[in-house]
Amino acid sequence: MKLLAIDTSTEACSAALLISGEVRERHEIAPREHARLILPMLESLLAEAGLKLSQLDALAFGCGPGGFTGVRIATGVIQGLAFGADLPVAPVSSLAALAQGTYRETGAQQILSAIDARISEVYWGAYRAGDAGHVTLEGDETVCAPQHVPLPVGADWFGAGSGWAAYETALQTRLGGAAYTCDGQRYPRAYDVALLGAGIYQRGLAVSAEQVLPVYLRDEVAWKKSR
């Protein structure tokens, strides 16, 4: 199968092309540069593989949670591509992609994904490596203060993501030492969005362009007046 994936939910911006299990990726840490970078990344991946959009089987995107604007850029881009090329779309949680990348690169079997959500909160999800080489969610994803994250069952958890860079002390205190290792420099990447997206597509769970929507988790922001 052939699948194109993107993630722009954090400071990182990445695109990946999966062709029969093999992944090519473009990746940059580039805060606020997503709109400038993302389509050229996709174009170069397709050109390198000698493919056209219309030859793909599906698209996948990091649907959030993460920066509102970044998540909407990915959503808007995938809406446009899916509508224009008439392709199905696999939405992938950015917390899941973060966990999948951590598992893939470090071998950690239990991952606590935390993305800095600003205003002293984190987007949070506990993931465990499963059979198909894909991580699966334990419990629910949530947004909350680091002091209140749900406690995972058992020990030997690996902390990953910008939430750990911002709130390591508070998180370690809350977890009472359960997460003895963490890496705050990890970001969700299109590589892993592609891997997880392929699974979603194969299980028949891909959606159509009009159903491509962001997942914010934070829905009760104290909306401020603009004028």
């Binding site: 389509l39 909407r72 808007g76 881009v77 809406q79 446009g80 509508f83 224009g84």
Partner: peptide, 20 residues
């Protein structure tokens, strides 16, 4: 206009044009 609002139209519009 509003940056975030504009980016929605720009993202969809630019990508749609490329796909077509």
């Amino acid at each position: 206009g509003l940056a975030g609002a504009l980016l929605v139209g720009a993202a969809v519009g630019r990508s749609l044009a490329w796909a077509w």
